[in-house]
Design a protein around this nucleic acid. Structure first.
Lengths: 157, 157
DNA sequence: CTCAATGCAAATCTTTTGCATGCTA
DNA sequence: TAGCATGCAAAAGATTTGCATTGAG
C-alpha cells in the first residue's frame, strides 16, 4: 500500500489534481513503486513490482501513467541503450540527490555517481544560461552519461 | 560511389580488415553515407540515402554494419527519445568537430552546439579521470544532451 | 575454395492505440 | 452523472534472427 511518509496529504496529489488528473489506486501504486525504488525502473519492472499487491493494474496503465508523470516533470525518462526506457523520480520529488550515470557497455550495469556533481552542475548552469540566450531555447532538463567498461567486466575480458 | 577524400587508401579499410571484417560495396556505401551526412542519421535514413545507388543493400545490412561500426568505436549511437536510434561518425573519424546536442521535446528538432565546448571538455576530462580511478571504470565515451523547447515551438505556444 | 556477408521473411520486443466498461470526483 | 481511467487485445514500429545464397579474399 502507498506510503505517506508521515501523516500529511500525499505530496503529489495536489499537483496531480491541479493538472486535472484523477487519483486512482493504480497511480498510487506506480508512484509508490518509484518512490521506494533504489534505482531506475523500466515500465515492466514497475509492473512486476506492484503486480502482487495490485493484480488489477495492467502494463498499459503503467505506461500511460509514466507518460503523464514525465510530462508533468515529476519523473525522468532515461535511455541506457538497451532498448527499454527507465524511469526515475526527479530529484526534489523526494529525498533523492542529484546524480549522473556510468553505463557499462558489456553488462549494462548502471552506477550512479555524485562525485564532481557540484562542478558539473555549476558548468551546466552556465552552459544552460548561455545556450538559452543564444538559441532562444528553453532548457528543462539534461542528461550526462559516461559509457565504458566496468571493473567486473574488465577482469572478465 | 564512395569518396576517397584524396587518392590514398580509404581511411577505414585497414582498421576494418584488421578486425577480420571484409570490405563490401554495401559497407562502403553505408560508411560513405555517414561521412557525407551533415547530421545524425537513423538506420532507415541511411537505407533511403543509399538505396537509389545501391538497391541491393537491404535495411538488415545497414543495421548489421552499424552494429559493427559502433562496436569498433567508429560510430556513435544516439538516442533522442523518439524511438529510433541515430548514428554519427565519431569525431576524429573525419573532419568533424566535437559537439553536443539540444533536443526539442515538442518537435524533436536537434541543434548541435559547440559553444562552451571547451569548458565542457575540460570538466569531462577531469570527471572521467576521477571516476575511472574511483570506480575502476574504463570510460570510452560520454553523452551530454539538453532537453527543452526550441524557439519555434515557443512561438507556437 | 571457405567462410563471412547478405537478402528476405519471420520473429521479437517494447510501446501505443481502439474500444467497451469501470470508477473518481 | 459525466468523463477520465483502465484492461484487453490488436497494432505499430524498430531491431534482430534463421536460413539459404552470394561473394570477398
Amino acid at each position: 500500500m502507498p506510503r505517506r511518509y508521515g501523516t500529511g496529504p500525499v505530496w503529489w496529489h495536489g499537483r496531480f489534481r491541479g493538472c486535472g488528473y484523477r487519483i486512482t489506486a493504480g497511480r498510487e501504486a506506480i508512484l509508490d513503486a518509484l518512490m521506494t525504488a533504489d534505482k531506475h525502473l523500466s515500465a515492466e519492472d514497475i509492473y512486476n513490482k506492484i503486480h502482487p499487491a495490485y493484480p488489477a493494474v495492467g502494463l498499459t496503465t503503467v505506461y500511460r501513467t509514466l507518460e503523464i508523470l514525465v510530462n508533468m516533470g515529476l519523473v525522468f525518462k532515461f535511455d541506457f541503450g538497451d532498448g527499454r526506457a527507465r524511469y526515475e523520480l526527479v530529484e526534489g520529488s523526494k529525498k533523492s540527490h542529484h546524480h549522473h550515470h556510468l553505463v557499462c557497455k558489456e553488462c549494462n550495469r548502471i552506477i550512479e555517481y555524485t562525485d564532481f556533481i557540484n562542478d558539473e552542475i555549476e558548468l551546466l548552469k552556465k552552459t544552460e544560461k548561455g545556450l538559452s540566450k543564444k538559441y532562444n531555447f528553453e532548457i528543462t532538463s539534461h542528461i550526462i552519461q559516461f559509457y565504458g567498461i566496468c571493473d567486473k567486466c574488465k577482469k572478465k575480458g
